[in-house]
C-alpha cells in the first residue's frame, strides 16, 4: 500500500477528512450528521493515515492513546447529562445557554453530549484500526 502517490496524498486526505468530520459533527444538531457518523469519518481518516505512513506516526499525531480519547468522550457525555442535576430536571435533559463571541451563539449540553459520542467513536474505532494495522506489519 505504500505507493508514492498514496503516501503523498494520505496526509492531505486525512486532514481534510478530519475537518469534514468536525463539520458533520456540528451540522448534526438539526440536519443529517452528528457525533457518531462524524466520529466514523475521523476514525477512517486516521486509519488511512496509518495504512499510508505506518501506525507510529498516527499514534504520535494523536498524542493521547485512542482508548483514553474514548474514555474522555464517555466522561464528557456522562457529565453533560449530569449537569441536569443542578437545574432540577431529569438526567440528559438539554440545557441551553447563550454566549456572546461577537455574535450570540447558543450552546447546550446536547452538543457536549454529541462531542462526547464523537470522541468515543473516534477513540474506539481508531484503536481497533491501529491494532489491526499493527498486526499486519508485525
Amino acid at each position: 500500500m505504500r505507493t508514492l502517490i498514496f503516501r503523498t496524498t494520505a496526509p492531505y486526505l486525512a486532514s481534510l477528512m478530519v475537518l469534514f468530520s468536525i463539520f458533520v459533527l456540528l451540522r448534526g444538531h438539526n440536519e443529517p450528521g452528528g457525533g457518531f457518523i462524524g466520529g466514523l469519518i475521523a476514525a477512517s481518516a486516521f486509519a488511512i493515515y496509518g495504512i499510508a505512513c505506518g501506525v507510529s506516526p498516527v499514534r504520535r499525531a494523536l498524542y493521547f492513546h485512542p482508548t483514553a480519547i474514548s474514555g474522555f468522550g464517555l466522561l464528557v457525555s456522562a457529565c453533560s447529562g449530569l449537569l441536569s442535576l443542578f437545574e432540577g430536571v431529569p438526567f440528559l435533559t438539554g440545557i441551553w445557554t447563550e454566549i456572546n463571541v461577537g455574535v450570540p451563539v447558543d450552546i447546550s449540553t446536547v452538543i457536549a453530549f454529541d462531542i462526547g459520542v464523537y470522541l468515543v467513536v473516534v477513540g474506539s474505532i481508531t484503536s481497533i484500526a491501529l491494532a489491526l494495522e499493527e498486526r499486519e506489519h508485525a
Binding site: A68, G71, L74, G81
Partner: peptide, 15 residues
C-alpha cells in the same frame, strides 16, 4: 451514572 463516570476516568488513566 457513577460506574460510567468512574469507568470513563479509569479508561483515560489506564496506565
Amino acid at each position: 451514572a457513577i460506574p460510567i463516570v468512574f469507568g470513563a476516568v479509569l479508561l483515560m488513566f489506564r496506565h
